[in-house]
């Protein structure tokens, strides 16, 4: 870890004028700083800002302060009742210790990463733009099948952000000039293209202050499923968030987002398009899943993620539609 200057911000104003790198839970940033992968010169501590509450928003949604911890968010009774997919996604991720530390804003902004990003002896276009990607022809079991490029095939490992994207969450930010803006959760992250070191659209010094969850249609059913290498405390090989609204056996709204498969939390628009207006039916679900994975590309070790994602999407939809039991024993 290289030396840095530490400042503790007392207000949002202080924070955005105090520096261009923020630290909240630090569960990803400190990890990367120890490896010398992140080398901030100045860190602004935003954990003491008054951004740690969850409040009712106009129109029936919730406004979540960016410093609400992952566990506080998962535990919140309103989240459990109205956005169960978010609570389940949060609780599917990491461990209680990490969730107690990690913040809502920080969870979004954890780095897209892979083994070769961590191994500073290997080539990585994210760490050293233009150096090359050792994952492409390397061991790439955990890597992306959607949205990747020849410059980077790492995945965004968040569970929370997958649910947020499915819920059409919006981020509120404050820039150093005092201006604010709203960024859709889905639009926060950028695909790697030829600049994989640019992972999101926020400017240096732009702070996420809140996340807005819009209200959902009545009767929406929520499912979060996560396939992984061990029963707990493992990143998703593939995860699926589903919010499904039906009228009889007609699907009136279907939202599907995927984790573990792309350099960003992946909104499955093709699957959604195939579902919209369709009937509740296993074949419909399977075809929707297949549509989403149509352009998926494996890199050898991660080829299995294509059928895995297909099956998991179809199964999660079936669960949301009540065709399958949601036992997660």
């Amino acid at each position: 870890m290289r030396p840095f200057e530490y400042v503790r911000a007392a207000t949002v104003e202080d924070a955005v004028t105090g520096g261009d790198r923020f630290i909240a839970g630090g569960t990803n940033l400190v990890d990367l700083m120890k490896h010398g992968i992140e080398r901030p010169e100045r860190l602004v501590d935003v954990t003491r800002l008054e951004l740690a509450s969850i409040e009712e928003a106009d129109g029936g949604g919730l406004r979540i302060g960016s410093q609400v911890t992952n566990s506080a968010l998962a535990n919140d009774a309103r989240v459990r009742e109205r956005y169960p997919v978010l609570s389940k996604a949060l609780l599917s991720g990491a461990t209680q210790q990490l969730r107690n530390k990690a913040s809502t804003g920080g969870n979004f902004l954890q780095r897209t990463r892979c083994y070769y990003f961590y191994d500073t002896a290997r080539r990585c276009n994210k760490r050293e733009p233009g150096s090359g990607c050792d994952a492409l022809d390397g061991f790439n079991r955990i890597h992306a099948i959607l949205g990747a490029s020849e410059h980077c095939i790492a995945t965004h490992p968040s569970d929370m952000a997958v649910a947020m994207v499915a819920l059409d969450a919006e981020l509120l930010t404050r820039k150093s000039d005092g201006s604010t803006r709203r960024v859709k959760a889905e639009a926060l992250h950028q695909l790697p293209g030829d600049t994989p070191h640019h992972e999101h659209v926020l400017e240096p010094g732009e702070l996420i202050t809140h996340v807005d969850l819009p209200p959902l249609p009545d009767g929406a059913r929520h499912v979060y499923r996560k396939a992984r290498d061990r029963a707990s405390y493992a990143f998703a090989l593939v995860s699926v968030a589903v919010v499904l609204v039906t009228d009889g056996d007609a699907i009136t709204e279907a939202r599907v987002a995927l984790g573990g498969v792309a350099p960003k939390p992946w909104r499955a628009h093709r699957a959604e398009a195939a579902l919209k207006g369709a009937r509740v039916d296993r074949d419909v679900f399977r075809r929707a899943a297949e549509a989403e994975l149509e352009d998926a590309r494996g890199h050898g070790d991660n080829d299995f993620k294509i059928p895995l994602a297909t099956r998991l999407i179809a199964s999660a939809l079936a669960e949301a539609a009540g065709l399958d039991a949601g036992d997660d024993r």
């Binding site: 530490y6 630290i23 839970g25 630090g26 569960t27 400190v30 990890d31 566990s71 209680q96 210790q97 990490l98 107690n100 530390k101």
Partner: peptide, 9 residues
């Protein structure tokens, strides 16, 4: 509340 002290400054 429990946390990992290794990742806390």
């Amino acid at each position: 509340r429990r946390i990992n002290s290794c990742l806390a400054l």
